[in-house]
Design a protein around this nucleic acid. Structure first.
Length: 429
RNA sequence: GCCGUUGUAGCUUAGCUGGUAGAGCACUCGGCUGUUAACCGAGCGGUCGUCGGUUCGAAUCCGACCAGCGGCGCCA
């Protein structure tokens, strides 16, 4: 039994092969049936010729419908007339299931395809998306393993908030209540005292009623935390990591990128060095692009889009004003009104994909900041304990892998970048 | 939380100023072809989101309700 992509080579010409898969397209006539068969590796055209097959087999094959499953044996021929350039003359066939009409045909609406995502998953587009995601997820882990990081598994059910309490999902818990995690950062920080450098890929949940092209309520959060390093060094590592992911996709997924119509040269440009721009400089720059921002304004989706069409690579934006970020960020010793943090904005208008920076590691400063944010120190006793026993400078980041996938594939909405999107209005299929 | 929009066959849709519905895809049958999202002919398939109102007459106008979609904010 061969995989279809294997068969698409001159080595197989004239040889007998067996492939199995699903009917991708079928066209029939009295004497011939053209069946395009799909498996996980690709598509190939097979021809059933009534003169060479028994009447039974020919009529069985002719009556197949899209997505029927079968296996065939036949002789490979090079043929310009076939979609993939090669063709199999069917000698024998076995039909596993000749199904009823497949619900998905052409000219379909976005909503219908989302309702039928379990079936649409078989489409060439979704196959390309899921293959590229696989590369991205693997590349992320591989990168950190190669740097000597440990992968850790934080809890998903938690009793404390990381960002704001209003966006937490509450889940019943033995008569009590627990939250679904929004970020594993605090737990990752607990690991650095034994492992120093750690990462995780785990889901995060946000109960924000966001209805935008780049928000999911359940998304794949890639996070890392490193002992002994500061904001600058953290950015160096992230830059290498992003570049590694893009390179791996370019190495492994050119056919899939083409399938999605991705401008591959534009993606290749993203592997150049990433500019680092201080927040206040970025405001000036944005205004020179025609925006109207003042110091202290946060960057909205429109602003990020308008800024990022001017860059080929992602850019780091650093030194945000304190008020724009949450409590655990380290103030800049040179200017305590700004913090040692960074956002990474993806090019081609995609905007924020990473948020990170140096963490406050001094107990007093952290306690004071928590007071300013009205957080109860008792709930965070374990987080504060980290600053009591052998505290060290450290930095980390969180990256939305689905957003990275969205940008790398140049799709128009995040729901197309994940197989089963969970949004404020969708939990099916 | 705010703003905007849509609801007509399984799916994608046409239907302007009111005269009780047309098409493409899918499916079935037939024809034809080395076909490429094939093509040609026929068939199947719709109480036009729901309820109420105006009218001789409502998919079309009005009202209420229901459901869906898009964008912003929030963030990754």
């Amino acid at each position: 039994m061969e995989k279809i992509s294997q068969v698409l080579h001159d080595d197989f010409i004239g040889k007998s092969v067996a492939v199995r898969g699903w009917v991708y397209r079928i066209r029939t006539s009295k004497k011939l049936a053209f069946i395009i068969i799909r498996d996980s590796t690709g598509i190939i055209q097979a021809v059933a010729n009534s003169e060479r097959l028994s009447e039974k087999i020919f009529s069985d094959l002719s009556s197949l419908k899209v997505e029927s499953s079968l296996s065939i044996e036949g002789i490979v021929r090079k043929d310009e007339r076939s979609v993939a350039g090669y063709e199999i003359d069917i000698v024998s066939a076995h039909v596993f299931q000749n199904n009823d009409k497949f619900p998905i045909s052409r000219d379909l609406g976005e909503e219908f395809l989302l309702d039928n995502r379990h079936l649409w998953l078989r489409s060439r587009e979704m196959t390309a998306v899921t293959k590229i995601r696989s590369t991205i997820f693997k590349a992320f882990s591989d990168f950190y393993y190669s740097r000597g990081f440990y992968q850790v598994q934080p809890p998903l059910m938690v009793s404390t908030a990381t960002e704001g309490g209003s966006t937490l999902f509450k889940v019943p818990f033995f008569g009590d209540e627990v939250n679904l995690t929004q970020s594993s950062q605090f737990y990752l920080e607990t690991f650095i005292f034994s492992l120093e450098n750690v990462f995780t890929i785990s889901p995060s949940f946000r109960a924000e009623k966001s209805r935008t092209w780049r928000h999911l309520t359940e998304y794949w959060h890639a996070e890392a935390e490193c002992a002994w390093i500061g904001n600058e060094e953290m950015m160096n590592i992230e830059e290498d990591m992003i570049r590694y992911i893009v390179e791996k996709v370019l190495e492994s997924n050119i056919p899939e990128l083409k399938e999605l119509g991705r401008d591959i040269e534009a993606l290749r440009k993203a592997t150049a060095p990433f500019p680092r721009i201080r927040y206040e400089k970025l405001i000036e720059m944005a205004n020179s692009f025609g925006l109207d921002l003042k110091y202290g304004d946060d960057l909205g989706a429109d602003e990020e889009r308008k800024i990022m069409v001017h860059f080929d690579t992602p850019i780091f934006v650093t030194h945000f004003p304190r008020e724009l970020k949450t409590f655990y960020h380290m103030p800049d010793p040179g200017n305590p009104n700004v913090i040692l943090c960074h956002d990474l904005l993806a090019p081609e208008g995609y905007g924020e994909i990473v948020g990170g920076g140096e963490r406050i590691w001094d107990l007093q400063t952290l306690e004071q900041r928590m007071k300013e944010y009205n957080l109860n120190p008792e709930e965070y006793y374990w987080y504060l304990d980290l600053r009591r026993y052998g505290s060290v400078p450290h930095s980390g980041f969180g990256m939305g892998l689905d957003r990275v996938a969205l940008w790398i594939m140049h799709l128009d909405t995040i729901t197309n970048a994940i197989p089963y999107p969970r949004t404020v209005r969708r939990t099916k299929p």
